[in-house]
Amino acid sequence: MQVFYTGAEWQKNWLHALQSHKIIGFVPTMGALHEGHLDLIRNSKKSSDITVVSIFVNPIQFNNQEDFDKYPVLIQQDLKLLEKENVDFVFMPKLETMYPEKPSISIQFGELETILEGEFRPGHFSGVGIIVSKLFHIIRPHQAFFGQKDLQQVAVIKRLVADLSFPVEIITVPTRREEDGLALSSRNLRLNSEERAKSLILYKSLCSAKNELLEGTNWLEVRNQIQQRFEEEPLAKLEYFELVETEKFTVMNSFDSSQKASICVAAYIGNIRLIDNLPINP
């Protein structure tokens, strides 16, 4: 496994891959790796000749400075995991490499940045779009792998690739969960034991809502039931619980079984913000 820190260091390896007609798979991460990240890497290794993983905590996608400051940094642990997975290359740029100066541009994603995550995290997707664009320009992968848990982010990145004509295929990998259903997330490391137990309200609510919809219950009635469930849990504060069309990520006011739909949720458990989603008819 080779670690590099600048685009110039990667250039000769990219040229060699190009000349050898090898497929480059790319997994961008912010570190604090878990099995969900490893699923992305394993998918890359199955369909690519070379797998590149980046580790970079991107400051401009955080709209809460405290959240950025508390983001777990576990570099040595991460590198051991990546070596065990036989990753070919790891890109670990310094902050000044990615941002010699504060970016003066922003990227707008239309309605995608006004709903759900976009509404509650203003500027977040612009920050995501800028860093992903930079990473795509540096790595120049043929394929890039993203987790379904960040479903709206996947929609944003697909829009970025389409609008800016990046020659990269975006591959979505299903959400990895704990045995009790909690979606794996680096933020889970910050939950205390009580918060960890109460965090299951997200997954249980998604499953309950999915079952109700499949049985024919009206969506607005389902959502009201879930909102009531959150109001009865003192440790939980619901931000949104919405039904979306999975591919275009547009909000739906009723369930239509002829369309691919997913339920999305975001909530605070204590002071930790968690998100999750569940496809109804994948």
Rank of each mutant, 00 (worst) to 15 (best):
I280H: 04
V154I: 15
V156C: 07
I50G: 09
L243M: 12
K70M: 03
V265C: 09
F166G: 12
E9M: 04
N271C: 00
H16P: 01
A261S: 08
F91V: 05
Q153M: 12
M30F: 09
K248V: 06
A266G: 01
Q228T: 14
K134H: 10
L79W: 10
I263V: 07
V251G: 07
E85M: 07
V3H: 08
K80P: 03
L95T: 13
L112G: 07
A267T: 03
E212Q: 09
R140Y: 07
Q228D: 09
S47I: 12
F145N: 03
G118W: 02
A32K: 04
I60W: 07
F91R: 08
I157T: 13
N58D: 11
N211I: 01
G129Q: 06
N188C: 02
A162F: 10
T172C: 15
W10A: 03
C264E: 08
L116W: 14
T172S: 15
H16A: 15
V244Y: 10
N63M: 00
N218L: 05
I201S: 00
F249S: 04
Y240G: 09
V27C: 11
P234T: 01
T51F: 05
A183D: 02
N271R: 02
P93K: 12
L160Y: 07
F230D: 03
L82E: 06
Y99V: 06
S186I: 05
K84C: 06
L182V: 05
M30I: 06
N64E: 14
V156W: 09
S257N: 09
E178L: 03
V173F: 14
D69E: 10
E245Q: 10
Q108P: 03
L189M: 06
V168A: 13
P282V: 07
M98G: 10
I41C: 08
E232R: 14
L189T: 06
E66W: 00
E195I: 00
T51Y: 04
K248T: 12
S54I: 11
T217H: 03
V87Q: 12
I138D: 08
Q108M: 08
D39V: 03
R176V: 10
E247K: 05
H21P: 00
K204V: 00
G147V: 10
R196T: 01
E179D: 08
L184W: 00
E117I: 10
S205N: 01
H124C: 04
N188R: 02
Q76H: 15
Q11T: 10
I60E: 01
L135N: 15
R159M: 11
N63I: 00
T51V: 15
K198Y: 01
P103N: 07
P59W: 06
A267N: 03
P103T: 06
R140C: 11
A183W: 02
T29L: 06
N63L: 00
S165I: 09
F241A: 13
I75Y: 13
E83S: 07
P59F: 05
D39M: 08
N218Y: 04
A144P: 15
K102Q: 13
G147S: 15
K260Q: 04
H16K: 14
L184T: 01
D276N: 02
K248A: 11
T114M: 04
Q227Y: 11
I138P: 13
R121H: 11
L243P: 01
V27L: 14
R159A: 14
F230K: 03
C264R: 05
P100A: 07
R223S: 15
